[in-house]
Design a binder for these strands. Structure first.
Length: 419
RNA sequence: CGGGGCAUGGUGUAAUGGCUAACAUAUCCGCUUUGGGAGCGGACGAUUCCCAGUUCGAGUCUGGGUGCCCCGACCA
């Protein structure tokens, strides 16, 4: 991509009421822009990151045998009344009426829709287990949006639903998903903590659920974490146990940690299958409700969390798998013909290797501004070419997350990048 | 939903109730410059969120509305 054509106007200043650092850089770098409170547009850079995250999630979901579907966002009122959630859902549903005055909800989650979809296709124990997921826009009528992308009213979510004969089989899959989640977050550059939580309006309070949390100074969640064994629990589950010993390992004490919730997995039991009539016939010919689980990751929030965790004073530091580009090619003084020729040659060569390169071909930007933009956008590897480096037949390589600068012979650049 | 704050060129900010609403930045033109947001000159750009009111006079004061931010409550 040629940077002069990239739709990204980086900003030097943002409104002072933006406190959240990661969010500030997403705005400054022109990854996203706000349309209304809790509602965001994604610009080319932001969308690229979002898509990278989406692809990681899709790969991991496919690898645990889940099939992708795409469900309706407009959902009839009656469906929500059958599970008694039309009025009880929290945060509230966005509700609207069609031309015939019929009520609909904009989907904030899809237990109802997926359950009746499954009902048509799961009747026997032979049809089980099954796992379906989608990556789709959700709408939530939040009372208050916060932290940029961290809590929005419209966002893309990956929601996975699993269907089982028995609680035991669900538990097995539950663990599999939990592992898959840790892997997803790892690939996104985050160390996630699995924390015990409560289900609220999704699973019912009696079912146990896990949240996946990432440590962040200004995260809005709080968990108690055991420094010894890594066991964790949400603040809401246990009040006033700071300093108490971990109930699991009994050795270390629990410490209160601020976190951002980046994923949540629920055991649903038979709540939805009973309410909506999803039953199967077992080997003995007995009719039983299907046991369900559901598992969610908010993609925008995950992106916001990454920015929140990985940045320095100059901008975001994207990890390799989620970065909008893998290489940032930055010529200094591109009006110099030798600099230009070499840069363009390198750009072409790298593209042939299917490297995702952002080439800063802008002539009217000073070196300072180009370098500042590079730090802000946060592509993992920066390649600087200038008269100075070309005197040594070299280009300069710098990792965004490191201080060290390395000179590499122009001819050896490609082999060097492979290693 | 309770409490608080804010609203001024594209963006960020300034302006005792008083003259033509100021500055920075961005953008455009010219010259110059090229390793950490360069310099000089010029240009473009605002119904000061909306509606009432007080006043000789309102960006500024009062009332109402709308929007945004923060704290709390709530929360996948």
């Amino acid at each position: 991509m040629i940077q002069s054509k990239l739709l990204a106007k980086t900003k030097k200043k943002v409104a002072r009421d933006i406190r959240n650092e990661g969010y500030k850089f997403l705005i400054k770098g022109d990854f996203i822009e706000q349309l209304a409170s809790g509602i965001y547009n994604f610009l080319p850079l932001g969308l690229k990151v979002h898509k990278k995250i989406e692809e990681i999630i899709r790969e991991e979901m496919d690898s645990i045998g889940a099939q992708e579907v795409f469900l309706a966002a407009l959902q009839p009122k009656e469906l929500w009344e059958r599970t008694d959630r039309w009025n009880k859902m929290s945060p509230p549903l966005f509700k609207l009426r069609d031309l015939h005055k019929k009520y609909f909800a904009l989907g904030s989650t899809h237990e109802e829709v997926i359950t009746i979809l499954a009902k048509e296709r799961i009747q026997s124990y032979k049809d089980l287990p099954q796992a379906l997921y989608q990556i789709q826009t959700k709408f939530r009528n939040e009372v208050r949006s916060t932290g940029g992308l961290l809590r929005t009213r419209e966002f893309v979510m990956k929601d996975l639903y699993s269907f089982h004969q028995t609680k035991k089989d669900l538990d097995k899959y539950f663990d599999k998903v939990a592992q898959s989640y840790q892997k997803i977050f790892k690939r996104c550059g985050l160390n996630s903590i699995r924390s015990e939580a409560s289900g609220g309006t999704i699973s019912g309070k009696e079912e146990r659920t896990f949240e996946f949390q990432v440590k962040a100074e200004n995260g809005e969640d709080k968990i108690f974490l055991c420094a010894g064994c890594g066991w964790a629990v949400n603040l809401e589950m246990v009040q006033g146990k700071i300093g108490a010993n971990c109930p699991k390992c009994k050795k270390s004490s629990l410490k209160k940690v601020n976190t951002i919730e980046i994923g949540h997995i629920f055991s649903l039991g038979n709540k939805y299958s009973k309410a909506l009539g999803l039953y199967f016939v077992d080997k003995q010919g007995k009719k039983k409700p299907v046991i369900m689980g559901c598992y969610g990751i908010g993609l925008g929030r995950l992106m916001g969390a990454i920015a929140e965790v990985h940045h320095d004073s100059r901008g975001i530091i994207w990890s390799r798998e989620v970065a909008p580009f893998s290489l940032h090619l930055v010529p200094i003084e591109i009006s110099n013909s030798k600099v230009r020729k070499t840069s363009e040659k390198i750009y072409q060569d790298l593209q042939k290797e299917e490297k995702e390169v952002l080439y800063d071909d802008r002539e009217d930007k000073s070196p300072g501004e180009k370098l500042a933009d590079a730090d802000l956008i946060g592509i993992p590897i920066r390649i600087v070419i200038s008269k100075r480096t070309l005197e040594k037949d070299s280009v300069e390589l710098k990792r965004r997350d490191k201080k060290k600068i390395k000179l590499v012979k122009t001819k050896e650049l490609q082999t060097f990048l492979k290693s």
